[in-house]
Each structure stands twice: as C-alpha cells, then as structure tokens.
Nucleic acid binder design. Structure first.
Lengths: 233, 233
DNA sequence: AAGTGGTCTAGACCACGAA
DNA sequence: TCGTGGTCTAGACCACTTG
C-alpha cells in the first residue's frame, strides 16, 4: 500500500490530530515514551517525529516538561493564493482560458521532488493559458497529486478554474511561493506573445493539505503586463 | 568553555567551510562515513549534522550519490522590509557594498511622484551594489526625502546599510512593494554580472513614516541568483 | 523519585547509483 | 561490488521540572 517510513506515518497521524482539532493549541502532545508504547517504535524514532513537528512549528517542546501544540501562527500573507481568473474578473475584464494539455504523466525527478511523491508516480498535469481581454497573461503549468484529487482531469477548465477544483477536493492549509525572473525560451515567448526584449515573471506555488502537497504550479507571466504588489504596515 | 552538543560543533564547522568559500557551491561535502572518521562520532550523529544542513538549505543530499553544497540562493519574504545585507549575513555569507553614486539631485517627474514631493525638489540619491561572497546580487537605486533624513549622504555605506540609517532617522511604519521581471540593459547586465540569457527581478519599494514617503528604491537582482519566497497558512 | 526532552552510541538493513 | 544516504533499533547518560 503505502511504503513510507514509520516516522512519516506517525507524523502525519499526529498532524491530523492537530489539524482536525482533536489536539487543541496549548494542549499536551503524547510524550516520546507514550508514542513508543502506542506505535511500538523506538524512542529515537519517536523523538524524530516530535522534533520534526517542532521544527515545522506545529508543536513546542520544553525539556523536562513536555511537548505542546503550538498556538496557531499569525500570518501576513505576502502573496495570496488567488486564481488569476479572479484577479482578471476583479478588474472587470474578460477572462478566457485555453486548455493546452490535460493528461496523466509519470513524475520526473523535478516534479516528483516538488510534489513530494516518488519518481515515476502518477501525476495529473494541466497546461492552461489565461487571457485577459484576449491578451495572454499567464501560462499555468500545474501538477496535481491524484491521490488527493483523483478527478482533477475531468473538469472543464474553460468554465471553472483549477483553484476552485482544488479547494473543493482538498482545502488548502498552507502555501509556498517563490518568485523569480526568468528569460523566456522561444515556445514561452510565442505562447505569452512576448516582445523581443521582455522578461518573464515566474511564480512557483505549492499548496498543502494535511502535510501533503496537493499541487505544484509554475505560473509564467508576461513581464510587461504583470506585477505583484504588496502592502505592509 | 562552551559545553555544546557535538553535532552543533561539527555543524558550525561545516557551515564555516561553506560560508568562507573553502567548500564551493556544487562541490562535494564529506560523506557521513568521512565525518564519522574525522570527528570520531557515530554515524547517527554525522547523519544528523548533514540532515540539518540539508533542512537549512545549505546542502543538497542525493541518496546513493552524496551530499553537495547548495547553490547560493537568497530567500526573502516579499513584504518584509529587510536589508539585503541582513539576508546575506543571515546565510553566513560575506556581504560587501560598493558605492557607485552618492549625490543630491532635483526630482524628475517620475521620482517626484514616487517620493511624493513636487517636481524639482531636492532628493538624496544613492546607487549601491551589494555583493554576496564577491558576486553581485543587488543593485540598489534609492532616493531619500532629505526633509526626513537630512544627513543621509554622510554615512559610509560600505560599513552600514541604508536600511539601518533610515530606521534610525525615521521608523518605517508602512511599506509598499511591487515585483516585476525586467529585461536588463547593457549597463545593468554588466553591473550585476548577468549572463546573456538572464532576466532581472525588480523590486520597487516605498517606505512611509508618519504618512510621508521616506524613501523609494528600485532593487535589481540577478534572476539566476535571487528569488523571493513567501509562506502562508 | 519519576518523567521529560536532549543527546549519543554501535550496530543494522535497505534502495540506489556509479564503477 | 562498493559507497552513499534513509531509516530504525535498543540501549545509554544527562539536565531539567514536577510532585
């Protein structure tokens, strides 16, 4: 079934207890020795689980006292998880989506790493081009973990957005973004209708649900037509 | 002296090797067994050291192959007002700053608008190049409102950072960022030592204190060596 | 005194990649 | 085949806090 390390199994089990509210902030986590007895593992492995949870900010550990569920962290969201379609419609412009690819693939090394699945595992893959008033704005290259969203490919993405589909299937609890400037290759330049001297803004987004990566996406934007903004006080 | 755990001693030793450039990006780290022999510790402890370095992004581990020094890549939070020097030093790398320009100018239309002063008003102007371990990372083109920070130009920016100067003079209460990808011109390409097919990540930042714009800055980064990251839950 | 987390050891088996 | 990292065990000693 799931040939995964013991410590991961235990870790996900405890994470779920916390995320589902059965273990509330400030309450006591099972101690290392309790985990040893409960799961029949060695103390080193139990220690690994709790130390990892501490490193992830899920729990707080106090030597001589115990391990406790951390208070939910205050988050100022630098980059909101918002679909490009919403942004376009919020501007009162017309959004259009062209489906370039829709398939199930085997994960190569890179996408396997980003999606947290073994190389060779199946991944749903969609390649969508979003247009604002008929002008290409974003190329969305997305991989989705089929174990979490099995029917991902069955949707009509000209009418709904991946964002909506994912939110229904697996509520996003955590997101990670990295933003970089890249030099477009010929194919990308053509798809996004880029000028000769135009760079490309790449937003890489990963979203998690219950500690597992739901989806990883590369969002390419025309440098001259798209920018991220943020306020902070 | 310093009764600290063995793994910390070894970890700091290896970190220093990396930050001082004796172990360069892409080069091979000592394997777990080599560390075992070199420091006379158990393999579990050696594994802990390298795993921690991997979690910190200092190295990359590949099962069956080895452990390698990670490519330097600065991670930063888009909305956080943090000086590039702090980011570099937080990674344990050497920060160096070259002062390219330091002057008082008359505000043109663009900078006047961004700084909220009438066109033709005086503005302090600095052009600084920040280097990480000797490699250009950020070109900082900054204008400062002299009414709020009159002595801005009198500082030695090879020893202190504009961020520190501004924070002392006028505590930042609000910030605005916009992020975009731009195509570098020849001058910028030379200053940042950009490759032929390398884009540029431009962060435009404005900071306010008491409702007035303190400073407006254009921060240009090498696309291959800099990225913004953000997390939120 | 009992329980907690922090650290460390000396083994072990495995999958993987390179030679 | 050999070295690599990934994982796991069954002990151990310590400093610390709580009762």
């Amino acid at each position: 079934m799931a040939p995964q390390p013991i410590y991961l199994t235990v870790l996900q089990h405890l994470r779920k207890q916390v995320s589902q509210g059965r273990l509330k902030p400030g309450s006591r986590m099972p101690s290392e020795n309790e985990i040893v007895r409960q799961f029949g593992i060695s103390r080193m492995t139990a220690n690994r689980v709790l130390s990892l949870l501490a490193a992830q900010g899920v729990v707080t550990r106090v030597a001589g006292v115990g391990t406790f569920v951390a208070e939910p962290r205050v988050h100022s969201h630098p980059l909101q998880v918002r679909s490009i379609a919403d942004e376009i419609r919020a501007r009162g412009h017309a959004h259009e989506c062209r489906v370039l690819k829709l398939e199930t693939t085997r994960a190569g090394a890179e996408w396997a790493g980003r999606c947290g699945v073994p190389a060779g595992a199946r991944l749903h893959h969609s390649l969508l081009l979003h247009l604002e008033n008929g002008v290409p704005l974003q190329l969305e290259d997305r991989h989705v973990n089929p174990k979490l969203v099995h029917d991902y490919l069955l949707h009509d993405f000209t009418r709904t957005t991946p964002h909506e589909v994912l939110m229904r299937a697996a509520p996003i609890q955590h997101a990670e973004h990295t933003v970089r400037a890249v030099f477009p290759d010929a194919a990308l330049r053509k798809l996004l209708a880029l000028g000769r001297s135009e760079a490309c803004l790449l937003v890489r987004r990963r979203t998690w649900s219950d500690g597992q990566v739901v989806s990883a996406a590369d969002l390419y934007h025309a440098g001259s037509r798209y920018e991220l903004t943020g306020q902070f006080s």
